[in-house]
């Protein structure tokens, strides 16, 4: 099954760029990605620019409306994702738990819908 792991964290909850903790944190991401590739479960994975760069698009009555900012103003914001190919939810949870941001934020694991 395919699973999307959505990585949420509050701004400033994790180590900031330029602090001594930032290096090991990024190293954690590198190691996690290596593990995913080695185990053959990684389909995709990217980090997103922060939410100040977000644009929300809606189409109403055929007219495209845009708004500055993310869809929902929540404390924890979407910062990146991985897509895994796993046998079951237990396996997906195991890999999601390796994402360094899980230690200060949260990772939502959702199965990808298979269109019939």
């Amino acid at each position: 099954m395919k699973y999307l792991a959505l990585i949420y964290a509050a701004p400033g909850a994790g180590p900031d760029y330029g602090t001594p903790e930032f290096g090991p944190y990024m190293d954690g991401y590198r190691k996690a990605t290596e593990t995913y590739q080695r185990d053959g479960v990684m389909l995709a994975g990217e980090a997103l620019q922060d939410t100040s760069t977000a644009t929300t698009v809606r189409v109403r009555n055929g007219k495209t409306e845009t708004m500055d900012g993310p869809f929902a103003e929540t404390k924890e914001q979407l910062g990146g994702f991985y897509m895994f190919e796993c046998a079951n939810l237990d396996e997906a949870i195991k890999y999601a738990a390796m994402i360094p941001s899980a230690e200060h934020g949260s990772v939502e694991v959702r199965p990808i819908m298979e269109i019939e």
């Binding site: 699973y3 796993c86 046998a87 079951n88 939810l89 237990d90 997906a92 694991v109 199965p111």
Partner: peptide, 14 residues
């Protein structure tokens, strides 16, 4: 069914 919660006896580590 949809989230793939396994129907298995867990591995010894879990």
């Amino acid at each position: 069914t949809k989230a793939g919660i396994p129907f298995e006896i867990p591995e010894p580590e879990h």
